[in-house]
């Protein structure tokens, strides 16, 4: 059954610029460096567009770059085979990014646990709690911190659609992030 958490629509006015990038499974050999390359491209492109709306271009480039890089790192690090689809829009000062990827059922379960925490606790307390827990556990991958810094430090609003695939081998995850640029 498909589960929705938070705001999951990529809605922007029909005049709003839109971008769609597909990082294809296969010969592209999707790897870590594609995260920063793609994030930088999106950040440069939309910071330029934001500047036209009198938004601080450097600030916009940084916020969009951090946001896109963190979501792409999650999508690439935890993915099951399949394409990673990136969509972005800018409507006035509202920047929205949607990233779709496939993950293993175990990974999706971990994400659902984190979503429960994010939606029920104070993000600032949760971030510090997670940092303390990571420091105690040498095996910790530090995962979850990216989403928490986005919510707590950048004021990003997150939403998810989690859809198990028919064969049960993978789960389709769409993460939507919205931030008001200033």
């Amino acid at each position: 059954m498909t589960a929705h958490f938070g705001h999951t629509e990529l809605d922007a006015g029909s005049e709003a610029p839109r971008l769609r990038i597909v990082l294809s499974e296969g010969p592209l050999e999707l790897r870590w460096t594609h995260c920063s390359l793609t994030a930088d491209f999106i950040a440069d492109l939309f910071a330029g567009l934001a500047a036209r709306a009198k938004i601080d271009e450097d600030g916009a480039r940084h916020t969009i770059g951090y946001l896109a890089n963190e979501l792409l790192e999650n999508a690439v690090k935890f993915r099951a085979p399949g394409d990673v689809v990136v969509e972005a829009t800018l409507d006035g000062a509202e920047f929205t990014l949607a990233i779709s990827n496939y993950a293993t059922p175990e990974m999706a379960k971990g994400l659902e646990g984190l979503i429960q925490d994010i939606t029920s606790k104070d993000p600032s307390d949760l971030l510090i709690e997670r940092m303390e827990a990571n420091a105690e556990n040498p095996e910790s991958t530090g995962s979850g911190l990216g989403l928490l810094t986005l919510v707590n430090d950048y004021g990003v609003r997150l939403g998810w659609t989690i859809e198990p695939q028919a064969a049960g081998a993978s789960v389709h995850i769409r993460t939507i992030a919205n931030v008001t640029l200033s």
Partner: peptide
């Protein structure tokens, strides 16, 4: 100029140490 969340985790871990 730029640090990802894994790098922020490194700074947090060191601060706790």
């Amino acid at each position: 100029e730029f640090l990802n969340s894994s790098g922020i985790n490194l700074l947090a871990k060191f601060t706790i140490n």
